[in-house]
Amino acid sequence: MLDEAASSRPAGRMIVVVGPSGVGKDTLIQCAAEHFKDHDGLRFVRRAITRSASAGGEDHESLSEAEFEARERDGGFAVSWAAHGLRYGIPRHTLDQLRAGLCLVANGSRSALPLFRQAYADLLVVNVTARPEILAERLVARGRESREDIMARLQRGSLTVRGDYHVETIDNSGAVKLAADRLILLLKDALTPSISE
């Protein structure tokens, strides 16, 4: 239950980071999380994923298909979607955090943006891109797909966000620090309204 002081604060903002596999979303989010680790007004959302916790990548809550379905059925997610054979969920408690005036950062998906817009009134989309040849190199290095599958997916995919969203784009083709600094600056800007209230 939120206290009266919390309910009188301005609503927070959801910042969802999207982009294709291999573009470096996890790395940029980790850099930003380290930068803001002592900031009280910003939280980084820990997603639930039907993937083993030992699979690498982002820090997430690992759920079985049955556990995910049960939580989804019980209303435990504000947003949930499926992609690449996995299921992803954003915890429902994020809605309370936003009502308390916090800004949240979540790793999302372009395909799920309509669901994010339904769930969160104030939504900023950060679209991370990279040149196709850079994406291909990174995906090949992961060793999860063949080069042929990767190239076919990149050719049929688009790096743009379609729809009427507030979108900021970060090109992560070069040095990670440049893209991370850009994300950090965007998050500082997003925090400014809540700081000035």
Rank of each mutant, 00 (worst) to 15 (best):
L42C: 07
L139S: 06
S146G: 02
V18M: 03
Q118G: 14
F77N: 02
I184P: 01
P193W: 01
D38K: 09
D96S: 12
G24I: 10
A55T: 10
C31M: 13
S194F: 05
V45E: 11
G163D: 15
R92K: 10
G85E: 01
E145P: 04
S64L: 07
F116T: 04
A82L: 11
T129Q: 14
S7I: 14
L191T: 03
H35T: 04
R182F: 11
T94S: 05
R46T: 08
D164R: 04
A179M: 04
L191A: 03
A136H: 14
R71H: 03
T169A: 14
G41Y: 06
V140I: 13
D96R: 08
F36Y: 02
S8N: 14
S146N: 05
V140R: 14
R43F: 12
F36H: 02
C31Y: 13
T192I: 12
K188Y: 15
E133R: 14
T160D: 15
I29Y: 01
S109R: 00
V128E: 07
K188Q: 15
R131V: 07
R46S: 10
N172K: 03
A175H: 14
G56V: 01
T192F: 12
K177V: 11
D40H: 11
D171F: 03
L139I: 08
A100D: 11
M151K: 13
E133W: 08
S111I: 08
E65T: 10
V17C: 09
V18S: 09
H60V: 01
P132C: 01
R87M: 10
S146F: 03
Y88D: 14
K37W: 07
R99S: 12
I29Q: 00
C103D: 06
P193A: 03
F36T: 00
A112W: 00
L159N: 15
D171T: 07
V176W: 13
F68H: 00
N127K: 04
V45L: 10
K177I: 09
W81L: 09
A5W: 10
L124M: 04
A106H: 00
A82T: 12
S62M: 03
D171A: 11
A175D: 15
A55M: 07
G163S: 03
N127M: 01
E67I: 04
R73G: 12
F77P: 04
Y165R: 02
L113E: 13
A66L: 04
P114E: 12
R92V: 02
G108I: 05
A100R: 00
L123M: 06
E145D: 01
T94D: 13
H93S: 13
A121I: 07
H39R: 12
